[in-house]
Design a protein around this nucleic acid. Structure first.
Lengths: 345, 345
DNA sequence: CGAGGGAATGCTAACGTTATCATCGTTGCA
DNA sequence: TGCAACGATGATAACGTTAGCATTCCCTCG
């Protein structure tokens, strides 16, 4: 029986199926299926007839049915901390460029930096049977790990390194990056170095490691009394500005501020402008991430650059290899980072 | 036969199915299904037994199979111009908040501001049979419109208004917003007003309308020779800086710059700092969008605020109503905008 | 000239769920 | 007591596709 319900009365018309296309082209459904997935197996004239039928009927394959039967959804699910912050966007772009080439789609969701929310998202994702999963960072709840273990699909964590990934991890050492940056401030003669970092020092690996790296560098330099010069703020310009105010209240002799992100650092710079503080003469400021604003703000910001786009590509490549049944060379990939010295130090 | 392949040899173990849960709980599969979707129809003791079984087996429902049978995927697909630009993030957040409440998932993809890419994405999306579609802006290819007409699902376009939406539209008038902003500059005595806008004036409705609004305001004020003082740049700080340089080369007596986004405007401000141009004494600068940086930069930026989060919520609400078979009150929803006067004008 | 082989195509049975209808007690009420 | 009505549960058949195994036909080669 035909699929159309009633084209005259305008009743809801269901989208056409392979069966409709097959009838139109005078072949069996399986041939249509083959034309779509493995055209080489179908003789050229037949293929042409099928393609014409598809075209004229405006047939769109139903990936839901395909996924059910083939047990491959063609979806890679990614949990990122926040779509708002452009820092993840480049990673996502890198992933997408690789995944699209492999015919895979990226399903995105943001956790708002909360491991609990991440767990809920992973649970929701798994119900859609993704072929692979991408997680940001290495801080996850026990529930998340358990579900992913049970799901038995490739998982890549990205952004920060760990010795014990759920499956695979690609990133750089946030600890070393922060340590390098702070050591650089020390080398340049700064002695009263403040820290303005984003909230989450206790539970988000990335933030925690940046904090730890900073502290280690201070300790190595014999500069004590860390806690007094450390402020936790929201990841925003406003946060940076408030952080500087707080620090100056505590220590008027401050001569440098280490910030855990460019956004916070630029917030500090704005506050310096308002207060008439000379950068870097009176106060040195450093960021992290090398976002566009770092090179454009005045004075231009010294920061740390990490290969975000490449990280996304690499993560996706590792997932794809696993999906093709090949072994990946390493389950822990360190992409490193660079310090970018500009005018604020 | 049981679903497990071989738990001893560690062979790939398929996830458990309803059948497994049903056997474990001593009920039929349909009862498990009911417990999940309509618990009220199952007696409390039975329900408890099933829930226990689900818990112990770590059962995760297969939404692919559910979608196939129920003909509802539970997915709302959204094409946004770019995940990078935080401006869309709030809209997305608004949508998500509403959709999640309705048990729907958001599938995101970015078009990179290209209508052709958007068409490809819509085609890919439709194969997954989304329940509804969200598009950014009102500029779409004929192919996109045709596919969406054929798909017969609710579609909402957001961001800019149009008299002839594909289905529904929610937004504000970019033309009126730009016109208001420029008129404000005129009112404040500015006469040599430059324009730095993002690329796409010819084919992206949002950009085109902002440009048109600016031109209309100039014409209304009797200020001619528009084209000479108009520059098209990338949507970036760098773009804004370059745009100002270009404008000053053409017209050293420039006394205001209208920018089509806050990012561009802040790029202009940075360049002013570098060149020692006094804002607003010597040069007035305006942005659009009211992103966080507008309130934090120095001097703080005069701009236009639009209800982005609310826009996302409203769009999602309209889609949900349609999915529930209810009629929406209006297919064109104007949310308006506000001018936010700060220190740059 | 017949067997063997490969290319092209088709048939049948799933994939894991839900819609639809059926069945079975149990209760309420005349 | 008998029957309708309802609540709880189950059996069966899809949803639209693809995996796996036929089948058909033609060509090649001994």
């Amino acid at each position: 029986m035909p699929n159309a319900v009633d084209s005259v009365s305008g009743t809801q018309q269901a989208p056409s199926r392979m069966e409709d296309v097959a009838r139109c082209a005078g072949v069996s459904v399986i041939t249509v299926s083959r034309v779509l997935r493995d055209p080489g197996k179908v003789a050229a004239p037949t293929r042409a007839r099928v393609l014409t039928a598809i075209e004229t009927m405006g047939y769109v394959p139903n990936l839901i049915a395909r996924s059910l039967k083939s047990r491959r959804s063609g979806i890679v699910a990614a949990v990122i901390p926040s779509v708002t912050h452009s820092i993840v966007a480049e990673v996502v772009r890198g992933m997408r460029d690789v995944l699209n080439e492999a015919g895979l789609h990226l399903l995105l969701a943001d956790s708002g930096f909360s491991p609990q929310e991440e767990e809920a998202l992973v649970a929701a994702f798994l119900a859609r049977r993704p072929d692979a999963i991408y997680l940001t960072g290495t801080t996850h709840t026990a529930g998340t790990r358990k579900m992913l273990d049970a799901a038995r699909i490739p998982v890549v964590e990205a952004g920060n390194l760990t010795d014990a990934p759920i499956d695979m991890v690609v990133g750089y050492s946030n600890l070393e990056a922060a340590r390098t940056m702070t050591r650089d401030l020390v080398t340049k003669g700064r002695r009263s170095i403040g820290y303005v970092g984003q909230v989450g020092r206790d539970y988000i690996d990335r933030v925690r490691d940046r904090h730890a790296g900073h502290c280690i560098a201070l300790r190595d330099a014999g500069l004590g009394d860390h806690a007094r010069l450390q402020v936790e703020v929201e990841l925003s310009f406003r946060g940076g500005a408030a952080g500087l105010g707080e620090l100056l209240d505590r220590e008027p002799g401050l001569d440098a501020v280490f910030c855990t992100s460019d956004i916070i650092a630029v917030g500090v710079l704005f506050e310096c402008q308002r207060r008439g503080i000379a950068v870097p003469a009176q106060l040195a400021v450093t960021g992290m991430d090398d976002q566009e604003i770092a090179s454009q703000c005045v004075p231009a910001l010294t920061t740390i650059r990490m290969p975000r786009y490449e990280m996304g590509r690499r993560a996706a490549t590792m997932l794809c290899r696993r999906l093709e049944g090949e072994a990946v060379d390493a389950t822990v990939v360190d992409l490193g980072f660079d310090i970018v010295t500009r005018q604020t130090t």
